[in-house]
Design a protein around this nucleic acid. Structure first.
Lengths: 206, 206
DNA sequence: TTGGCATGTTACCAGGTAGTATAGACGCTA
DNA sequence: TAGCGTCTATACTACCTGGTAACATGCCAA
């Protein structure tokens, strides 16, 4: 994947940029884990800094505000979902096949660090600007899902009463996974996700 | 319903108790609305007090802590859900009929003030003791739902792969309603709930 | 009348945390 | 060697808000 054959300790040039990006990522990962474990407000940047063996001003060297950190966490989660959804949309098969793929990919992201941030973050935790971008990204994903559902309805592989409500119902159920699924529990993520998606596709009736 | 023909402004005796209870309820209602609009942490008790034309110590005359206020809000929501669920469980009809009733009742509560509190409150916002009670109440409701699903599976009116996952999927989708349903939107609560429950029961496949 | 309970108020404290000012250390470049 | 940009720490401020102490008022019961 990477051809970084640094044979010299003098990394030089753009290696600096790579390190900076890596440190940004480290801050985000750690922050996301704290947010998920304790909640956004209950997490102080001193906590995050301490976990990374640095101090708070160091974090402010990489991010402008706590709000930016939370937003970047959710943006990564939403980007992951959107990417997976686009991939699924481009696959072959019926609308139903692609919807199943899309829901499965969505679920896999939503139970990971950044995905949990997405599911748990509420608008009013972000600044007005970040909140607007956050909602815009979510709307984009919603559009992708509705499109696949519509295609499924058109090709007869899905049966839909209300496009909007169907999409919200599906994403709502998957977001719920972020709140109750426990990786340390009895069932693996794959098993839980497979069963959840099957429940949504098949419904409760025989 | 009430035979309180107070012909005198001196209410006396147990009327005091009723007033006290009414004031407690008023605090909870107002607090719940603030929590839902701005979030728990972003709502100060001064805000709530001001909206009620009193001051903060007055609120502390009725509640011991902010934690207690949040917990009582969620408790009311959960009690409403549990009550509705028990009613539905006692109705006649197949398991599928009763499940549909139960989900519909659940949804009606979850889009109201206290229900939104339930859906949005996360464990770490409550004290350890309140959190434990909160989870216990939720577990109880989960048990009611699983029981009806199991009965539906037994009488053949439902088809279930995994009881636990099915219950979580259903409640997750309904909890999502609290986050996106807008009473001022184009569709009424009844319509949205009916379509959501139908989607869950029937699934996406034809 | 007197004491006690319920209800409120004004004024205040304490703790925690986002964010900053300042200065030092390191490595690269000229 | 001089100097610049990057990165980090110490020490601090500002502010908000949960919670409390002390006091005022009025109703009720003995």
């Amino acid at each position: 994947m990477e051809q970084t054959a640094d044979a010299t300790p003098w990394a030089g040039r753009d290696a600096r940029a790579r390190e900076r990006a890596a440190k940004r990522e480290a801050v985000l990962r750690t922050a996301a884990q704290f947010f998920n474990a304790r909640g956004f407000h209950a997490t102080s940047l001193d906590d995050v800094a301490a976990a990374l063996n640095v101090t708070k001003p160091t974090i402010y060297h990489y991010f402008a505000s706590k709000d930016e950190i939370l937003f970047e966490c959710t943006r990564r989660g939403l980007d992951n979902i959107a990417g997976a959804a686009r991939d699924a949309a481009l696959r072959g098969g019926s609308g139903a096949d692609r919807l199943r793929q899309m829901l499965t990919a969505y679920a896999h992201v939503i139970v990971a660090d950044y995905g949990i941030c997405v599911a748990r973050t509420q608008d009013h935790q972000l600044s007005p600007e970040s909140s607007a971008r956050f909602r815009a990204l979510k709307r984009e994903i919603d559009g992708l899902i509705r499109q696949v559902i519509a295609e499924g309805a058109a090709d007869g592989s899905l049966e839909v009463r209300d496009l909007r409500i169907a999409a919200f119902t599906l994403t709502g159920a998957l977001n719920g996974l972020a709140n109750w699924f426990d990786p340390a529990g009895p069932a693996s993520a794959d098993q839980v996700i497979e069963a959840t998606v099957a429940t949504l596709m098949d419904g409760m009736l025989p």
